[in-house]
Design a protein around this nucleic acid. Structure first.
Length: 765
DNA sequence: CAGTGAGCGAGCTTCCGCTTGACTT
């Protein structure tokens, strides 16, 4: 019999702690929560003062029975779940399920996994804090009430299988509202004037500096007029300002900042970052990856100091402890850092190496000296205009933490490039090399990426480190939003260039609105959002979470009773649910575009059973009602009558080829060409089903035939060997079969193929 | 693998936050 059983949440943590505690302690893991509200029904008895109905989920039964067995065999049970609201609740559920005495069972906490912290914790156990547990119960029950009362309203009023919740609905709202800002954004343009000046120093060496005019010019005429002035004057340096400054490193990673930087620097999706980090954590290479804390253990700070001094020298080291500033942070863990700071690199997959490198650098940089910079600003005066040209340059005097790491930012325009400015003095005359006025368009606010959405949610205090990635998956799985690339549209920009007193106009094109991996709201997301905003304004308010969190904190402090808090919330909330159900507004999400120009029938768009659809005519008026699905990227909100009517022109016959009709249409998988019962997809972003001609259609048909021929390696009529994405395979009756390893395709016979098919169907059973 | 949009109504969908595997394709 082992004297002491310690229960923690994570198995990787259990392994480490057991090493620190020695042979008198057996450390096991609960794998997170072991009980939850009943899966079916509401799981809450509202009339019994919100009495929760807890059950052990099926997938947890094995863990729980093992825990029970260990607990029965042990002398003392120590509950060592995380030091936060959820951790306290886990401890309480464990006590309840394992039949431990709530008032006597030892509860210990540590927010870093070091030998010192753990032995210290063992010395000072406390008991379960029921106030903290109750604040968790309030949180859990409130979320269930919101999710399980609002979602069914959506099923009834909008579409089945939809969902709403305190976190996901706000995430969707952010994306929808951002899209509307972009839709209503009116882009304006103005000419930005930049000059290249040549500066010759005492030694006669020439350098070119770039300076920007202090004014922008709204029209071509004004820009031209200014350039004319520029060509007819002299330039003198009016002032030179040199300002020293410092830059400080960012704090070490939390879940949210790791997701943002891994996206910006490595192009990882939020889910990918978490999966790779999980592997690093399980291999003992980094500390826990779901954390809101920027705290580092004394051990980590000390070790980092040694590493930095040895690697870069004493003057690069500066120990710092960062205060966590994010709203609602619970700080149960350390920041995300290398377990062993002396390992600057690791073995593993490419992605593991890259992410580890990022974490190592960020951690080291956080313990390094400020960078010292010198910012120089030069103002150049013109002889005939009050407009000045300004140039800024930055010189790094001491690189400090920048030696290791510099944080990326979200803005994409690399406009404010900083150059090195040579020695110049006030009153010095200089000459221009060239001056150009370039039309610049204002840009709408950026669409969210997964990572920037996480950042925003964290700022609002909505969601937790363990739920950022799942929330983003949920809103995509429900079809509310979609992560997409957009090619953008070509835009002409005008420019005028002044050189040697002569102005030459030139035009160039740029791509406007090009997007990569951005979150776009879908029609159903917009309809659901508008419905929620109208019917449940409190729930989708950006401050709702912050407000209820304040009350949860009061419960944790013992100032409010948790069921009272729930009663206060539920009364008015449930009324809004009833009101939303009573409302007989049948036209949810319908937008009437106008009337058919020929027949006068009403034309509308809405989200139908199979997605967004345009409709001509309606039941009430009689006659035939016609439907046509909207194309991908067409929004109910912005589609025009003309565009909607165009949808009804498909499928259309565009001619004949090899004595068969060629028909263009749009199907389940997008626009296609149909020819003698075969389908050929149109190229995305290249072909348009409404304008494609016979010539291009023929081309698509022959191209596909060519590639099919390339694919075909052996042809035994009903059985074929084809070359696919994952190498050669056998195909028969539209079913594919993998080839055995080391198979010689050249010698493969029809009989061999039949054997392969036989074997494969046997193993499937 | 290229549609679907009548009406009835059974039975189902759904939340947030803790934690990891065990499964195919």
């Amino acid at each position: 019999m082992i004297e002491n059983l310690v229960i923690v949440e994570s198995p990787a943590k259990a392994k480490t702690i057991e090493k620190y505690l020695g042979k008198d302690y057996h450390v096991v893991s609960s794998f997170g929560h072991i009980r939850d509200l009943a899966k079916k029904n509401l799981g809450i008895s509202i009339e019994n003062n919100f009495l929760p109905d807890y059950e052990i989920p099926k997938e947890k039964s094995k863990v729980v029975s093992e825990l029970k067995k260990s607990a029965n065999e042990a002398g003392d049970v120590w509950l060592a779940s995380d030091e936060d609201r959820e951790g306290e609740a886990i401890a309480w559920h464990l006590a309840a399920v394992l039949g431990l005495d709530i008032d006597k069972t030892k509860r210990i906490v540590f927010h870093e996994i070091t030998k010192e912290a753990i032995t210290e914790a063992i010395k000072s156990p406390r008991t379960i804090n029921m106030n903290l547990v109750n604040s968790q119960q309030a949180r859990r029950i409130l979320d269930r009430l919101v999710g399980f009362e609002v979602s069914p309203v959506l099923w009834k009023k909008v579409q089945p299988a939809l969902s709403a919740g305190r976190v996901q609905s706000v995430a969707v709202r952010l994306i929808v509202e951002r899209e509307r800002e972009i839709i209503s954004f009116g882009s304006e343009s103005a000419f930005r004037v930049t000059a290249l000046f040549t500066i010759t120093d005492e030694k006669g060496e020439a350098t070119v500096i770039k300076a920007e005019a202090s004014k922008r010019f709204p029209t071509d005429e004004e820009a031209m007029k200014f350039l004319e002035l520029c060509g007819a004057t002299e330039y003198i340096i009016e002032s030179v300002t040199v300002k020293p400054g410092t830059r400080s490193p960012s704090p070490p990673f939390t879940t949210s900042t790791l997701q943002q930087e891994a996206y910006r620097k490595l192009g990882f999706s939020v889910a990918q970052t978490m999966a790779v980090a999980q592997k690093l954590y399980e291999a003992g290479k980094i500390t826990y990856m779901r954390t809101d804390s920027t705290n580092l253990s004394k051990l980590a700070i000390g070790k980092s100091k040694e590493v930095i001094a040895a690697e870069y020298g004493e003057k690069y080291s500066k120990s710092r402890q960062f205060k966590t500033k994010s709203k609602g942070a619970q700080e149960a863990h350390e920041a995300i850092r290398p377990t062993y700071p002396d390992n600057s690199s690791i073995t593993g997959t490419q992605n593991e190496k890259k992410l580890y490198d990022l974490i190592w650098k960020r951690t080291m940089a956080s313990q390094m000296a400020d960078a010292e910079v010198e910012k120089t600003t030069i103002i150049v005066k013109m002889g005939n205009s009050p407009v000045t040209f300004n140039a800024t340059g930055e010189v790094i005097k001491f690189d400090g933490f920048l030696k290791v790491y510099s944080e990326s930012t979200d803005n994409e325009g690399g406009d404010d490039e900083k150059s090195i400015i040579p020695q110049v003095s006030k009153g010095m005359p200089i000459n221009y090399k060239s001056i150009s006025a370039v039309q610049r368009f204002t840009t709408p606010p950026p669409r969210y990426t997964e990572a920037s959405l996480v950042k925003k949610l964290e700022e609002l205090g909505i969601g937790r480190p363990s739920t950022y990635a799942p929330t983003i998956s949920t809103i995509q799985n429900r079809g509310y939003v979609l992560r997409e690339d957009r090619p953008g549209e070509k835009r002409e920009i005008r420019m005028y260039n002044l050189e040697k007193g002569k102005i030459t106009p030139t035009n160039k094109t740029e791509m406007a609105g090009k997007e990569k991996s951005k979150l776009f709201p879908q029609n159903i997301g917009m309809v659901v959002n508008d419905f929620l905003v109208k019917n449940f304004p409190v729930i989708v308010d950006f401050h709702f979470t912050a407000e209820v969190e304040e009350q949860f904190d009061e419960i944790a402090l013992g100032n409010i009773e948790w069921t009272k808090m729930l009663k206060g919330f539920y009364g008015p909330f449930h009324e809004t649910v009833d009101k939303a159900l009573e409302n007989r507004d049948s036209k949810i999400g319908v937008r009437v575009l106008g009337n058919h120009p020929q027949t006068g029938e009403v034309v509308m768009v809405k989200v139908g059973r199979y997605g967004p659809v345009a409709q001509i005519g309606n039941k009430e008026e009689g006659g035939t009602v016609r439907f046509a699905s909207l194309n991908a990227n067409q929004l109910i909100e912005t589609i025009t009558l003309e565009e909607a009517l165009k949808l009804f022109s498909l499928p259309r016959n565009i001619g004949e080829f090899e004595e068969s009709d060629v028909v263009v249409g749009t199907g389940k998988f997008g626009p296609y060409v149909r020819h003698s019962n075969k389908f050929y997809s149109l190229k995305k972003g290249v072909d348009d089903p409404f304008s494609i001609d016979l010539e291009r259609a023929k081309q698509l048909i022959t191209e596909k035939r060519e590639s099919e021929k390339m694919k075909l390696m052996k042809d035994f009529d009903d059985i074929k060997v084809q070359n696919g994405r994952y190498g050669p395979y056998v195909t028969k009756d539209k079913k594919n079969y993998r080839l055995p390893k080391g198979c010689d395709i050249e010698k493969l016979t029809k009989e061999d193929c039949l054997v392969i098919i036989e074997k494969s169907s046997k193993t499937k059973k």
